[in-house]
Each structure stands twice: as structure tokens, then as C-alpha cells.
Amino acid sequence: MAEYLLKTPLKDEEIKKLKAGDKVSLSGIIYTARDSAHERLVKLIESGEELPIPLEGQIIYYVGPAPTPPGKAIGSAGPTTSYRMDPYTPLLIENGLKGMIGKGERTEIVVDAMKNGTAVYFAATGGAAALIAKSILSSEIVAYEDLGAEAIRKLEIESFPVIVAQDCHGGNVYVEGQKKYAE
């Protein structure tokens, strides 16, 4: 289990080094999107329209944060379950997306897209939302404000703790980790 410090945007050579189970501390800019925002992004790509956020080299964090209390940068902000985004993800990777942060295993279509497009899937600890919010320095809604908690936010993060859940070589910490402890 190696440990890395990475800054966004991610480069292919950095992604290729990452193996399932590695610990990564992320810094830089990431974008949030979940179910409804994904649906809208994919529709825009399909109709050839411009996207409200850049995808090239970027990371999308699957999160719908709690409302921001006074004096804080953001409310509690842990990951949501990723598989719901699987139908939309391959198209985003084809358009330059390099990383995703969420929780739970991804399906085969995403695994293939990650191999072909050199992308990585990170897991943040589900439910550790108050802890994770501490590594988010600022949050700004950049699209789809009408979606409330599901709006797309631009987050500035520092030392955001994640684990490489599924790498671009087909490695999968869920399968490998669980096999080790199954009796």
C-alpha cells in the first residue's frame, strides 16, 4: 500500500502509478455532481453543447453536501454511493474526466472506460462527512443551483483523504480486500 500526494488536474502518468489500495491525499480543485447533474451533463455532451465545467484532467466528487452552517466553508460532505452514476460515467471519461471520488464498487462499463481513458476511481469513507468537510477550503455553486444539494459545486480541497478503490489497470480493492478476509 503506497501513499501519494496528488494535485489536480491529474496526469496520465500519475494515474498509471496508482494501484488499488493505495492511500492518496488530494489537493487542488474538484467538482461535485451526483444523479441529476450527471443526467444533465450527459445530455449536453450528446447534443454537442458546451459544459458548465471543464472535464479535461478533472475529478468529480459524488456528494450532496448538507447546508453550509454560518462560519463554515461547507456543510458535512461525505461521498454518496457511486454505482448510480455508472450509466453516465463512460461518456464523461471519453470527454477527459480523469478521476472520481465516491463509495462502493463500480460496474464493468466503468472499469472498461477507466482502462481505455486512463482514469481512476477513489473511495472516500462514507459517513465520515464532518471529517471530510475539514479538508474542503471553499465551495462555490457553478451550475444547476435549482438542484439544491445536487447542484454542481467547485471545491478547493487540501489533503482530502481517499483510497484508490479501482485503478486504471483493473485492480479493485473491494474484491481484493474482501477476498483476503473472507472465511
Partner: peptide, 15 residues
């Protein structure tokens, strides 16, 4: 996380 949430009175989980 649980310690931070109870001390700062913020939600344990965003959900």
C-alpha cells in the same frame, strides 16, 4: 468524524 460532529454540532453524515 463522530467526535468532530458532536463537538461542532454538525451532521455526522451529509445524508
Amino acid at each position: 468524524n463522530s467526535r468532530i460532529a458532536s463537538t461542532e454540532r454538525v451532521p455526522i453524515c451529509q445524508d
